[in-house]
Simulated scan of single mutants.
Amino acid sequence: MKTPSSTTTPSFLLLGDSHVGVLGKAAQARQLRFGGGPLGAGRDFGVDFFDLASTDVTFTAPELQRLYRQALAQLDAPDLARIPGPLVSSIGLSVHYLATAQNWVCYQDPDGTFDPGFLDGPLFASIIDTLSRPALAFYKHALALGLKVYAVLPPQRVPALSDARVFMAAQALLVARLQGLGVRLLDVRDAANDEQGLQRPEYCEIDDPLHGNLAFGELLLERLLRQLA
Rank of each mutant, 00 (worst) to 15 (best):
L145Y: 03
L178G: 03
K140R: 15
R177G: 08
D163G: 02
G182R: 04
Y139E: 13
G180C: 09
L161Q: 08
R133E: 15
A172S: 13
I128T: 01
L147H: 10
Q171H: 08
V166G: 02
D129P: 08
H141V: 10
L143G: 10
G182A: 00
I128H: 03
R133F: 11
L145F: 02
P155N: 11
P134L: 11
Q179G: 15
V175C: 08
S132G: 06
L131V: 09
K140W: 08
L161H: 09
L147Q: 14
A151C: 11
A137T: 10
L143W: 00
D129M: 01
Q179T: 06
L181F: 02
L161T: 15
V166M: 03
G182V: 02
K148Y: 06
A164C: 06
R157D: 14
A176T: 05
R157N: 15
R184H: 12
A142W: 01
P155I: 05
T130W: 10
A125N: 09
Q156T: 09
Y139W: 13
A135F: 08
G180R: 07
P155W: 12
T130M: 13
S132M: 03
R177I: 00
D163T: 01
D163H: 00
A176F: 07
A170R: 01
I128K: 01
L185R: 01
A160N: 14
D129C: 07
L147F: 09
V152Y: 01
S132N: 04
L145E: 04
L181R: 00
A142L: 07
L147A: 05
P154S: 11
A125V: 09
L147T: 04
V149F: 01
P155T: 13
K140M: 05
Y150R: 12
V158L: 08
R165T: 15
V158I: 12
Q156L: 14
F167L: 04
V149P: 06
L136V: 15
A135G: 12
H141D: 09
A137W: 00
Q171P: 13
D129W: 04
L153F: 03
G182Y: 01
G180S: 11
L153A: 04
K140G: 10
A160Y: 08
L181H: 02
T130G: 14
A125P: 11
V149C: 02
L181E: 00
L178H: 01
P134M: 13
F167R: 01
R157I: 14
I127K: 09
Q171Y: 01
L178F: 02
V149K: 00
R177S: 10
Y150C: 05
S126P: 12
A151H: 04
D163R: 01
L185D: 00
V166L: 10
A142N: 11
R133A: 14
S132I: 00
R133D: 14
V183D: 01
A137R: 13
S162P: 12
A160P: 12
A170F: 06
P134K: 08
I127D: 09
H141C: 11
K148T: 15
G180N: 12
A160E: 15
I128A: 06
L173H: 14
I128G: 07
R165P: 15
V175Q: 05
L131P: 06
Q156S: 13
G180W: 02
V183W: 00
V175N: 13
